[in-house]
Amino acid sequence: MSTTDTVRRPRTTTDFDEELIPRYSFVERVNHWFGAATYSYCLITGLAFWTPYLYWLAAIVGGGPTARFWHPWFGIFFVVSQFLMFLHWGGDMEMDNDDRVWADNIKAYIENEDDKLPPVGRFNWGQKLYFWAMVGSTILLLLSGFVLWYVEAVPWSIHILRYVAILIHASVAVLTIGLFLIHVYMSTLLEEGSFASMVHGTVTRAWAWTFHRKWYYEVTGRSRPKQ
């Protein structure tokens, strides 16, 4: 990592660079925040059941029994948001060859040397991975969550189901929490302009050119310059 990064080039953008182009439709944004809110509710209540040190989290959403009552319902709402997200973005999330090269050079991305990476489409490899991991996890959380939800519906003869369900639910939840932390960090702190894009639905041309160059060429209608 080099300390000269910040002075690498003069950072002057033109008015053209700062012109806004649409990135997320209104419906996509509403659904994204619906997913974020329902996931956060599951996260807060789930962590309360996860460890006594965080049991106080239940108090901020109305107490233990209330948290227990709503957690599965918000889980269902989250599943709905994931399903809609799948409809919105599933197509753009398919991996291509550039993604594989990108993944092999992820170290450059982590060290903010993005110019060493192949050009990126609407979403980069990390976003795609996050998307598919969340889709898979949602299915596992839903299935295992259902077993835990209706306590009286699982007869003693198959109570092994409860053992399996709690192990799956807790481990998959922790996995998604890890991914979620990375996701929140990258979109609020790390990549400037990302958070605003999900709020306003627009990004600057420069942002698109910097982080999603293939998509920039696509939406601005210019073909990729020959190398």
């Binding site: 950072r11 953008t13 053209f16 929490i177 932390l181 702190l189 790390l190 990549e191 400037e192 910097t210």
Partner: peptide, 29 residues
Amino acid sequence: AMIGGIVGLALHYLRVGPKKEEPIPPEDR
């Protein structure tokens, strides 16, 4: 993993800082 993750992300930010948009070079402008 959760605590390590939070600490790791904080250290990452302190070390490499934010990713900023770059000016578009003339040939793409």
